[in-house]
């Protein structure tokens, strides 16, 4: 081991571990209000036991992961504007899903497809517009009338 002075660096795994640690602690925090127990005369363990145990385990092991890999240098978080692009695609998907109950599957899927194609770096208009259009229409009509999935 090459032990230089270790200093904490927020790497991608560390970030995810912190995220998991925090979520599991929040999970434990709200477990009492989110899991009601009806006393139907059933004994221990009840509906709350397993979730709480599993959440504590997850919290403990995420913390352990953070401590053990303290000075780890690999997989830095990466450039922020790249995350911006990911969030744009995510947002497009959210908008598409939001609109589906109102406008149906087709417009949402086409919109999302176009944003994804653009975000992936394609700029030729024919491919940006045409590809999602063809795929979405094929999936929609194939799914709806071919295999009877009642798409909105």
């Amino acid at each position: 081991m090459t032990s230089k002075t270790k200093h904490f660096q927020l790497t991608m795994p560390a970030l995810t571990s912190i995220l998991l640690l925090v979520s599991s602690l929040v999970g434990i925090w709200i477990a009492d209000s989110e899991i009601q127990i009806f006393s139907f005369g059933d004994q221990w363990p009840d509906a709350r036991t397993v979730p709480v145990v599993v959440l504590w385990l997850l919290a403990a092991i995420s913390a352990l992961r953070l401590i053990l890999n303290f000075g780890e240098q690999k997989t830095p978080i990466g450039p922020v504007h790249r995350y911006g692009q990911v969030f744009i695609v995510l947002l497009a998907a959210i908008i598409a899903l939001w609109s589906m109950p109102h406008f149906g599957f087709l417009p949402g899927a086409i919109f999302f497809g176009i944003v994804a194609t653009l975000a992936l770096g394609e700029r030729r208009p024919l491919l940006v517009l045409g590809l999602p259009l063809i795929v979405a229409i094929t999936v929609y009509y194939g799914g709806r009338y071919g295999i009877g999935v009642p798409l909105p």
Binding site: G108, I114, E122, V135, V149, L151
Partner: peptide, 20 residues
């Protein structure tokens, strides 16, 4: 860049079709 948008649209459909 051409394949993934198609997969994404299929993913929307596939997830929906499980329980409609």
């Amino acid at each position: 860049r051409h394949l993934l948008p198609a997969i994404a649209i299929l993913a929307l459909f596939g997830a929906f079709s499980v329980n409609n």
